[in-house]
């Protein structure tokens, strides 16, 4: 039984698992070159944990096997929880890949590759510009993941669960948690340096855990209790999720705008 769920989980995730190394590479390039798991890595792992949580709930719906599973004598919450648990090794592998990229200094290599041919002196660039580019890249990445998830989903069932949840965490984290933490702890000259401070990393992880936990609970409850997307059922189920999605999109947009134009720059250098 245990092995069967583990194997099932692995196969359920095959369709999207290739996105993780790309994500790990991007995270490594953007976050820095020190060979340790930074706060950003913790955050990135958290993002994937959310992805995992939401997708594990949605996998059966996407593959059309939900009806088979949910008519078996199982506790739905327990089943989804078990799938989540069995997906954790993939998260650990992701962190391992991030660390490996750091060990081989992939950022240095990538930045040189990009900047040398056009003669850009990265060190001379104003810090807030790098910060903004950094934040914007993560946000773009999150949106890219969202659309990726839609394109790989038969009916867009996991649109809310996967894409929007991932994006909302980025929005909350960058828009609210980061400025808040920087105001509490007193920010270092750069966000990237902040993220490499162990106390800050732990604190940021803890703060991000709250919305992440809430969203995981939401995803689980929605799928376990009422939203069972059934192909050909007339689409009524999807509408149950639509209002949640709309709300989350609004929060994300507010969060992103706050980060880009209000929160982060104000905390960084008193702009």
């Amino acid at each position: 039984m245990t092995l069967a769920i583990l194997r099932k989980q692995w196969l359920d995730m095959q369709g999207r698992v290739w996105t993780y190394p790309i994500f790990a590479f991007t995270v490594s390039v953007l976050s820095g070159s020190e060979a340790r798991v930074t706060g950003f890595h913790a955050f990135a792992a958290l993002l994937l944990a959310l992805d995992l949580a939401s997708q594990t709930a949605g996998d059966d719906a996407r593959h059309g096997t939900h009806e088979f599973m949910f008519t078996r004598p199982i506790d739905r919450r327990g089943y989804i929880g078990a799938k989540f648990f069995f997906g954790l090794p993939i998260l650990l592998a992701f962190i391992g890949v991030c660390t490996l990229f750091e060990l081989v200094n992939v950022r240095e290599w990538f930045m040189t590759l990009i900047t040398d041919p056009v003669g850009i002196d990265l060190a001379a660039r104003p810090i807030d510009l790098v910060e903004r580019a950094f934040g914007a890249s993560v946000i773009v990445l999150a949106f890219a993941m969202m659309f990726l998830s839609i394109s790989t989903t038969e009916r867009g069932d996991s649109f809310v669960a996967h894409g929007v949840l991932s994006t909302i965490v980025v929005g909350i984290y960058l828009g609210f948690a980061m400025p808040f933490l920087r105001s509490v702890f007193g920010g270092a000259p750069s966000l990237a340096e902040d993220l490499r401070t162990p106390a800050f990393a732990v604190a940021s992880f803890a703060v991000a855990l709250v919305p992440a936990g809430a969203l995981y609970w939401l995803a689980r409850e929605i799928y376990a209790r009422r939203a069972l997307p059934v192909p050909g059922s007339g689409g009524g189920r999807d509408r149950n999720l639509a209002w949640v999605g709309a709300l989350l999109v609004v929060i994300v947009v507010v969060g992103v705008l706050m980060y880009l134009f209000v929160g982060a720059p104000a905390q960084m250098g008193g702009e």
């Binding site: 099932k8 009806e67 192909p231």
Partner: peptide, 23 residues
Amino acid sequence: SQEQRMFEWMTVAELARFVAPLY
């Protein structure tokens, strides 16, 4: 059901092993 989809990568024996402990 008409459209009931099971796990296509499982064999009949594996499906039975997967499901049997539930009952």
